[in-house]
Amino acid sequence: MNSNRMVVAQRGVIPPPKHYADSAWFKYILSCCAATTAEMVTYPLDLAKTRLQIQGEKGLNGSSQRSPYRGLASTGVGIIREEGMLRLWQGVTPAVYRHLIYSGTRMVLYEKVRDRLFTTRADGTRPVWQAIVGGILVGGIAQFLASPADLIKVQMQMEGKRRLEGHAPRIHSAGEAFIKIYNAGGLRGLWKGCMPNVYRSAFVNLGDLTTYDSVKRYFVNTWALSDDYWTHALSSACSGLIGATMGTPVDVVKTRVMNQPTDDRARGLLYRNSLDCLLKTVHNEGFWALYKGFIPCWLRMGPWSLTFWLTYEQIRNLSGTSAF
């Protein structure tokens, strides 16, 4: 199916060529495949971002981490030199698990909400405020469901750094991390840092999913651009920048809340809650500490969005599914 046929099919003039192509379960699988591809390609940037967000954080004794990294490049080089090349993908397994829940849920839910509840104008565009509400809603729901996998990912990402600082290893695998977290805090412990995670996802989806959908429809319906690679690339570039700008502060809070040590009741020893973490971070390190890791976050979200949307749109095309 060419790009023009995809646009026509999307508007309902011709039916999809295969009976299963537009089913929710099939779109779920396609979105998981696209998200896994994007995650594997850009994961080292996520690891660097997490390390940068933690540096400068004051511990239980009031002291900050030693030997902070100095930017994205030196962070990556430092990880390779001190821990090895493969450590750039440390924690990628739970990251993929997360997207098997998160990306599939958010993409299917958003499309269902958009097609059934959004208002469609005569020119094919939809009100931006509806896209904003839809993006925030589905992002929060999807991230809540995937929060345990995100918690495991963050803790695994920090293991290499902890060992270099002389701390005993906490975990060696995603399965071990899951069991230890569950044994320490039960089901509640698996959702540690859940709320900043949900807030972050809501903002990121507002920037990523909502921006991509709105910008792409504007290009196709108003500027009469073809629904092709170039339109997908331009739309994803916009979504990556807006998503990183809106999501980085909440991502910093989420990372610190998830990485902090806990007591025997799964309560944090550094921060009482997300607001407490936000206030302490600004007080101890200044407002711009909320944007630690912004460059790798942006550099990751840009390629991630580009890889995801190009992959997703093309496999939908090849599978006979209507364009997003």
Rank of each mutant, 00 (worst) to 15 (best):
M1Q: 08
R5A: 14
M6V: 10
R11N: 11
I14A: 03
K18P: 02
K27Q: 09
Y28P: 01
T37L: 14
A38M: 04
M40Q: 06
D46Q: 09
L47V: 15
Q55S: 10
Q55N: 11
S64R: 08
Q65F: 09
R70H: 12
E83V: 12
R87M: 12
R87S: 12
W89M: 06
Q90H: 11
T93H: 03
P94C: 06
L100Y: 08
S103R: 04
V108N: 04
V108D: 01
Y110K: 00
E111A: 09
R121H: 14
W129P: 02
G135A: 12
V138C: 03
G139W: 06
A146V: 12
A146K: 02
S147E: 11
A149M: 14
D150L: 13
L151F: 09
I152Y: 04
I152R: 00
M156F: 05
E159F: 07
K161P: 05
K161R: 14
K161Y: 11
L164K: 10
A168E: 15
P169A: 15
I171H: 09
G175L: 07
F178E: 01
K180H: 10
R188K: 13
C194G: 00
M195P: 00
N197T: 15
Y199P: 02
R200E: 14
N205M: 11
D208G: 04
L209S: 09
L209Y: 03
T210C: 09
T211C: 09
T211K: 03
Y212F: 14
V215M: 05
R217P: 03
V220F: 02
N221C: 13
T222F: 00
A224N: 13
C238G: 07
L241H: 03
G243Q: 05
M246Q: 04
T248R: 01
T248P: 02
D251F: 10
V252C: 08
K254D: 08
M258F: 02
Y271P: 01
R272K: 12
S274W: 11
L275D: 05
L275Y: 07
D276S: 06
L278W: 10
T281L: 07
E285R: 13
Y291D: 03
Y291S: 00
F294D: 01
C297I: 06
C297P: 01
L299G: 06
L299H: 03
W304F: 14
L306V: 13
W309K: 05
L310I: 15
T311Y: 01
R316I: 11
N317H: 10
G320R: 02
G320T: 11
S322K: 12
